[in-house]
Amino acid sequence: MKQLWEKISKNRYYQMVFKNPFTYITGAVLLSITQIALFAYSGNPWGVSGTFANWGAWLYQLFGGSVEKWFYFSTSGAQATLDAGILSHTGTMLNVGIIFGALLATLLASQFKFKKIKSLKQVVAAVLGGLLMGYGARLAGGCNIGALYSGIASLSLSGWVFAAFLLVGAFIGSKLLAKFFM
């Protein structure tokens, strides 16, 4: 059995598809095809962070909180999604699918390693960064996927405005990173 895995590992086509990383351009083309296919199939482009708000709401409800009165969840559609639960939520399947897809790709390349948190700095960075992204994504109506990628591809001006200020944020973030988190 061991020989078989070794043999596969040395196979040219295995290395091409599963071992070696794709180029960025290949990634761009494949992502575009998948994005367009998703849009054609479901009538909605790809979004990631809207689902996080739903996860937050379900978590909050688990602790006895209620979001019914919040403007964000006030539409009947949002309420129906919340009532249907996490196992009927398509966005959840998409996001968990991303985690599994990435795990699969890493394992098939035999490159999986659990990476522990190394320092307090990383904890602070993750907490602060996570909160900023979460709040920011709600304000802008999405993240790099929903508001930027899907926004721009939907011929929306909001995507371009978001892009410009993301760049400003990334510049500030780079300076902060060099100063405090390195």
């Binding site: 990476k115 948190i117 390195m182």
Partner: peptide
């Protein structure tokens, strides 16, 4: 750079 997240390894290098 073990355990460092992007882009720290690049900046350190």
């Amino acid at each position: 750079c073990m355990g460092e997240a992007c882009p720290v390894p690049l900046m350190k290098t």
